[in-house]
Nucleic acid binder design. Structure first.
Lengths: 136, 136
DNA sequence: TCAACTGTAATCATTATTATTACAGTTAGG
DNA sequence: CCTAACTGTAATAATAATGATTACAGTTGA
């Protein structure tokens, strides 16, 4: 798993703190310590899902599109990292009854496990995170 | 996440099918399609946790130490891949209130989410997997 | 028109993962 | 007690994934 998810959460949290002000990828990069070009790629995913809005050109930038209490972490996880929990199985021996079947079975098991994982994340919103930050 | 977990499950399932026969890492490698030296490293973890037994020397090899219905996937996940679900956060800006606090908050959130994940895996045993293999 | 942005692809550097080699230590069986 | 067949483990090399950086076309406000 790469760190797109945690970076995305960071971006959204950052934008939420800035209210509806428009901020540049350069600004956000200051907080996340990640290259603006990479941020823009991740922000682009969030935009396609309507979580944020972007504006090109001078005085352009990014801003939040939804309220922090409506943005749940499972949504962000799904769009940035879905399926990354499913383990890669080596392509095992097709002639072995275990090798042949195991990978599909494990993928199914992991699918279900990921669902439990997401189900928990569904209960956590950006507002929860902001509250935690403010109380610490 | 590397594929140690799925390889470990494969090994245990394989040994379970072989009953208490002793098999070599070379044998298992045939089924998993992974280098014997890597398998021995993973098998070594399983041995330390008493899931399997190993015997060195001529006629040596590996065999299962526990019954398939008692071996749950969460156990295997924990010993091979614990904490791998927690996303790596870039070391964000200490001078930014969000950067400073977010990584700890996310780690906590992911801890909890991983627990839900493991909780599901706890309900799946090696016997379940063998049954699925046999019925397919 | 130009400076300040986003959007995106291409390239390069770094890190993680995996395969392979090597060899010391153990053991069964002659 | 020798030797072939194993495990245990470290070291090295190859490959793949991730991330940083550069580059530049396209958009926009002033």
């Amino acid at each position: 798993m790469n760190s797109d998810f945690s970076i995305a959460v960071h971006c959204v949290t950052y934008l939420a703190q800035k209210q509806s002000q428009r901020v540049t990828s350069e600004d956000i990069a200051q907080s996340v310590s990640v290259h603006p070009a990479r941020l823009r790629k991740i922000l682009s995913i969030l935009r396609k899902e309507n979580i944020i809005t972007s504006k090109e050109g001078a005085k352009g930038g990014f801003s939040l599109n939804d309220s922090p209490e409506h943005i749940t972490l499972d949504k962000i996880f799904k769009i940035t990292s879905e399926e990354t929990l499913v383990p890669k199985c080596p392509d095992s021996n097709e002639n072995c009854p275990i090798g042949r079947n195991l990978s599909n079975i494990l993928i199914r098991v992991f699918h279900n496990a990921e669902e439990h994982f997401l189900n928990y994340l569904k209960g956590v919103t950006i507002k929860d995170i902001i509250d935690e930050i403010n109380s610490s």
